[in-house]
Design a binder for these strands. Sequence first.
DNA 1: GAGTGGTCTAGACCACTTC
DNA 2: AAGTGGTCTAGACCACTCG
Lengths: 242, 242
Amino acid sequence: MAETTSNIDARLPAYLRLRDELAARVAAGEWRADEALPSDNRLAREGNLSVGTVRKAVQMLVDEGLLERRQGSGTYLRKPAFNATLFRFFQMRDAGSGQSIPTSRLISRKQMTAPSGVAEVLGTNDVIRIERLRDFADRPFLSEEIYIPTNLFSGFEAMPDKEVGPLLYPVYLEHFGVFVASADDEVSFGTADETTAKRLGIGPGEAIAVIERTAYCISGTPVEWRIARGPANRFRYRSRIG
Amino acid sequence: MAETTSNIDARLPAYLRLRDELAARVAAGEWRADEALPSDNRLAREGNLSVGTVRKAVQMLVDEGLLERRQGSGTYLRKPAFNATLFRFFQMRDAGSGQSIPTSRLISRKQMTAPSGVAEVLGTNDVIRIERLRDFADRPFLSEEIYIPTNLFSGFEAMPDKEVGPLLYPVYLEHFGVFVASADDEVSFGTADETTAKRLGIGPGEAIAVIERTAYCISGTPVEWRIARGPANRFRYRSRIG
DNA sequence: GAGTGGTCTAGACCACTTC
DNA sequence: AAGTGGTCTAGACCACTCG
């Protein structure tokens, strides 16, 4: 039922196989957000497993932010996960109004040969590059360059702009069955080159913040590399450790 | 057996009570690093619990980075946790040589009344302030101001310099029974004031990176607030999400 | 071979939600 | 009242480490 992004069984423990199967079924769109998945008992019966084993698998997906359990009610697909986890940075200094999601403008999407550093991270030369500009408080604040492997995201470059929307990770999940489960970020500071300065509406040579991110799916395979640049004086990066 | 930082029992689930008890006994120094804790079976017998319940408690402490399990061998106190988790940022741009821990120079330690923002975070006015300068590659790269509540760290300001060492969190654990389990970081960008510039060996007004951190113990109580400043061009912050 | 952690079972009772 | 997840038990067998 739906190809997983992960590898073969290879006689992994049952709870890992079940976790991967559930993640794949979620990715395949078997349940809508806020719709209950089968109960622990049901999954146990259907999979010829004991309830304890099922609970272990489900709990892992809860820890990873994919699912949500409500006592007495059921286990649910957790859509707002995307805001709460991988989107909790990039809050700007002048954001008094809570954490609204910035708008996005797609500048370009193009299949291409990956720059060498990117190819190394993603393990392939054949990628799609996305250029994007994100606005906040009616001003551009983040210029992004995003690379995803063509073999996982074939057809992405041809999707209508309006289907892409302001957030990419939900698109990855719903259209390509790729669930972004974790990421490594690196924050540093530099100065704007001409292109970046023009996009951000600042002067060339002005201070910018740079975020480089590698994103991984549930099995640990890198599925995206991106670099984002924004004006340093409006920048604030939040991170929870441990 | 040693006061815990956490609250009363209040009939919490057994696995949480055991987790807190184990954390307290670790904090009290009952086991040295790389020394095996009692086995799951033993803990189960002594606590009149089933093995499954013990495993759940121990697993939580493993997830939190306090313990380490080695199949066939035992469960161990994990000292290098400090390098691997809460110390994996602050790698500088010119660090080709792997992740050596920077040296630290204590500038001052002093009991004082907390600035209002700090008092709010820590929930007390009575704090100890630590000023510290960290060197990397023989140059200063981080000027830190650290605040800890006097009621938890009474006597810290009087400890001999040499006992404090380059890393604070191990000192918190070994001398005061406070295990730092998580932290919130905020990275932003600014310019150096006179004092900071002098300490870092740069010019006033030069670009600096600012990291503000709130650290929490296992029960979620804030136990430290710090602000660190370093030259922006040498700065690199790493973070793993999810 | 004895002891350890890793996986798994087949139940039990409880707290909670839903109807 | 029925169904759900939350906790807990008392075992089992396996993979692994260590003396």
